[in-house]
């Protein structure tokens, strides 16, 4: 099933008198239960693309369909709802609320989804358990290691059962051992039937993915299936 379709997306930033073409002409389809890595040199537009896919930003031109919704036409409110219900974000810098404990951080998307306190607590606790942090629920971010913080962020991304998980350099702030642990967690999440797109600079991180899209200067340079490590019975189609 098709989740994301973008056609001829461009994003132009105006910096003073100058126009920065972060994305020039990008078309892409991503199906359910794909595991995609986006690579490319610094400044090639990876984060811009991710923000677009994550409905944090809207393209300057082009078409973006998320499932059956035309995202390019949406207002702030509708974008917020899509982000809340359909998308799970994982950031390089974790982006947890520093003054709230792990449980409350994971609860947050459920608050905005309008879910009652009792159910929220239960689901957040379950999500934390699934990332191996059952014993850290009441720790604040500064009482957790980098890897643990990223696990909290992953739990927060998972807790709403989104259609897709987006991770922009999720291991960028971690040492390689911890990064590898996080990638194993992503693998697990993928194997449970989730769809994952992640941005990385590291080949060995990208190797976990089934499909690698390389960007250069705001254009797709290559887009290839690199692995046959699919779950048997699940077909992944690539244009």
């Amino acid at each position: 099933m098709n989740i994301i379709t973008i056609e001829h997306i461009a994003k132009v930033y105006q910096v003073g008198m100058e126009e920065v073409h972060a994305l020039r002409d990008v078309s892409l389809r991503i199906d359910k239960n794909e595991y995609v890595a986006i690579m490319g040199p610094s400044g090639s537009g990876k984060s811009t693309l991710m923000n677009m896919l994550g409905c944090l930003d809207t393209p300057t031109s082009g078409l973006y369909n998320f499932k059956d919704h035309n995202v390019s036409q949406m207002n702030d409110n509708e974008l917020a709802t899509i982000r809340n219900k359909e998308i799970g974000f994982v950031f390089q810098t974790f982006n947890l609320l520093p003054r709230s404990d792990a449980l409350h951080n994971v609860e947050l998307p459920l608050i905005y989804a309008g879910i009652t306190s009792h159910e929220r607590k239960e689901r957040a606790a379950a999500a934390l358990e699934s990332v191996g942090l059952a014993d850290r629920m009441h720790h604040k971010p500064n009482e957790l290691s980098g890897g643990q913080r990223q696990r909290v962020a992953i739990a927060r991304a998972l807790v709403t059962n989104p259609s897709i998980i987006l991770a922009d350099e999720p291991t960028g702030n971690l040492d390689s051992k911890t990064g590898e642990d996080i990638m194993l967690l992503f693998n697990e999440i993928f194997e449970q039937g989730n769809t994952i797109i992640l941005v990385t600079h590291e080949e060995y991180i990208a190797e976990h993915a089934a499909r690698i899209i390389r960007l250069r200067d705001g254009l797709i340079e290559s887009d290839e299936n690199v692995s046959d490590r699919f779950i048997p019975g699940k077909k992944v189609s690539v244009d």
Binding site: G54, N77, A80, K85, F89, L108, P109, Y112
Partner: peptide
């Protein structure tokens, strides 16, 4: 500002 960004990223509406 960053907190606001985080909240919005995970689904807080403007009016929220």
């Amino acid at each position: 500002t960053r907190e606001i960004g985080i909240r919005k990223a995970i689904g807080a509406k403007n009016r929220t």
